[in-house]
Write a protein that binds this DNA or RNA. Structure first.
Lengths: 355, 355
DNA sequence: CCGAGTATCCAAAACGGTTTGGGAAAAGCG
DNA sequence: CGCTTTTCCCAAACCGTTTTGGATACTCGG
């Protein structure tokens, strides 16, 4: 069925135009050796001139690969949050896909239909690889994708799953250990943790890192100083307000995102306190393009790792995996930088106490 | 060529299993009338049991439609910013696509290759409709897509283009006129505008709205109070700092995004001023899921319009257009709400002046 | 009981590429 | 020069659907 739309010239037409067979034209364009160099040149030239583009669907049908990678964005029914790091990760991955001539297909789906979405995408052969976003503990998507027998790569990890799978993650645990250590070194003892929701794997690891550091110095962890919430400015604000009103308030905050940190800053202002002098804050910084942590000198001291770069790397890894699925589960752990900004300083309480 | 991967059962196999022809099975599944009801039932049942999923590529090839909509995300080479409203828009659109059984394919591309990306997506038949993001003045993508003869819908508009095309936009101009009016009503006369980059169409319209309101009350617009920049916290902060240091500083700010507004708030704190008392702020609020404007009572007084809802609507409109391209250019202008928050109050300067 | 409908089903031809299995001409070799 | 390779090209099958154009059997009015 032809549509009014000019779908471009077809391979057969191009061949006809050149007085060649479709076979030869196809081979010429795809760089196969069994075609004379000047013929190839003629073909390439004609293809460019008539701006021929091979029909993706026909091509995939014939070759068996879709030349596309799938991403499923779960939109939780409970908390309607679209993960803010998502856009940057996608941007990074997209660059890699573009370079490799792959398409990216996105599916937005409610939590409960998620498995169905994966089955569909794979079963209908729409994609030949998948990226898993926002893994949780014992994430059921991992066994599912293994069962579907399609190359996939997890952005993050899923603690509790021992079977091997491919992933790219940042070292959340060490990052938060280092950050906590830094605060401890400055004399802080009451350090609050404002974390992301702890069904997310990264949040669990960050808490572990935080607890590790406290324990190593025999500082008792106070449950009242630990909160897990959706990472929004409002939640950061509220958590910080509540804690600052405590009898024994924290002198430092370790938080899981810049948005949370902005909320904490807000709370400090409301309380008439000075960021980096009265209270210190270290945040994780995904280096989002629209949420830069200051400019020349960073606003917040932070554990930084570019999620966009992670997107690029993840896509590259997955593409390799698609090209050669046997190259086995591949993993990569990125270390985070601890960058010094203007939100940290020595603990005033300790000075005051000694005074 | 068969791969190791279990691509699922094929229509032919399903037919064989049932002792029917592929024709009949196809018809049974697609609801054509020329098949006996009990046969249809048998087919449906078997399809479910063997969990048959029609191969998308084969289906599209046969039908001529891709069942997919394309989005091109331009990633400017200059300013590496991924538009923050993008994620929410996509989430909304994705919901609509999912409902309609469409896929969403994303292409990330540098500004200069953008035309090429559109030509590719259309020419290779990967999508049968496109959404245009972030239109600028005289946006070249609009004539391009018209030339490519594919249904498309612009999220926003492109001033300067008179030929009809389909779009969904919010009434930026009226929104900013109303916001400015509100500030004027409170006695503010020196009202700063911190806008998005003015090659973006929405930013132009917002400035027009702002200027309209000033002119209607014969308030002279001061170029020193108008700035256009990428909408980040840092830029909001810097712009506000600079203006607050002026001899004749603004008593109110009208800003184009919550992130900018947060930057302004930051600057006010630094200057020791109180938001909503010393200085008023009205912002535009895209109602982003990860950047809520407070909760019960909004933090900022704002012109609000959910970009996620816009995504849903835009997708629906485009799908209608794809189903019936002749249904002609369709347009929709959404009005914005002016919601009252805690960031506005009467102009203190005027009181002081009268005192 | 017969011919015209009608209800069901099917074989085969698309869709636009890739890939297999030759085949003719040119080149290499003794 | 004859024979084997190699080079270059092609016809046809295939990928997994939909759709066209019948075919067959059944129904029904007369």
């Amino acid at each position: 069925m032809r549509f009014g739309r000019e779908m471009g010239i077809t391979l057969r037409e191009l061949a006809q135009d050149l007085g060649l067979s479709p076979t030869t034209v196809s081979r010429a364009l795809n760089g196969y050796p069994e075609v004379a160099e000047d013929t190839r040149w003629r073909v390439m030239e004609a293809a460019r001139r008539l701006n021929y583009r091979p029909n993706t669907r026909a091509k995939s049908l014939a070759t068996g690969r879709a030349q596309a990678i799938g991403h499923v964005i779960p939109v939780s029914a409970k908390h309607q949050i679209v993960n803010p790091v998502f856009a940057d990760f996608i941007a990074g991955a997209g660059e890699s896909y573009a370079r490799a001539g792959y398409d990216m297909v996105l599916t937005v789906v409610a939590d409960d239909d998620e498995a169905q979405a994966y089955r569909d995408l794979v079963g209908r052969g729409t994609v030949d690889g998948m990226i898993v976003h926002g893994p949780r503990q014992h994430d059921p998507r991992i066994p599912l994708l293994r069962e579907l027998d399609i190359p996939f790569l997890v952005h993050g990890r899923s603690s509790g799953i021992t079977a091997p799978y491919s992933w790219l993650d940042i070292n959340n645990r060490r990052g938060f250990t280092r950050a906590t250590d830094a605060l401890l070194d400055m004399g802080h003892r009451r350090i609050a943790l404002i974390n992301g929701l702890e069904d997310m794997d990264f949040a669990i690891r960050r808490r572990e890192g935080y607890l590790d550091a406290l324990q190593a110095r025999a500082v008792r962890a106070d449950p009242a100083l630990m909160v897990a919430a959706e990472m929004t400015e409002t939640n950061g604000y509220r958590a910080a307000c509540r804690m600052l009103e405590m009898d024994n308030p924290p002198s430092a905050f370790l938080v899981s995102s810049i948005l949370l940190a902005i909320g904490v800053r807000h709370a400090l202002w409301d309380a008439g306190m000075h960021l980096g002098r009265d209270v210190s804050v270290i945040t994780h910084d995904d280096d989002l393009s629209y949420l830069k942590n200051g400019d020349a000198v960073p606003l917040f001291t932070a554990t930084r790792s570019s999620v966009r770069e992670a997107g690029r790397l993840a896509a590259d890894m997955l593409l390799d995996l698609v090209a050669d699925p046997a190259s086995g589960p591949v993993t990569r752990l990125l270390e985070v930088d601890l960058i010094v900004g203007r939100s940290t300083g020595p603990c005033p309480a300790s000075t005051r106490k000694s005074a």
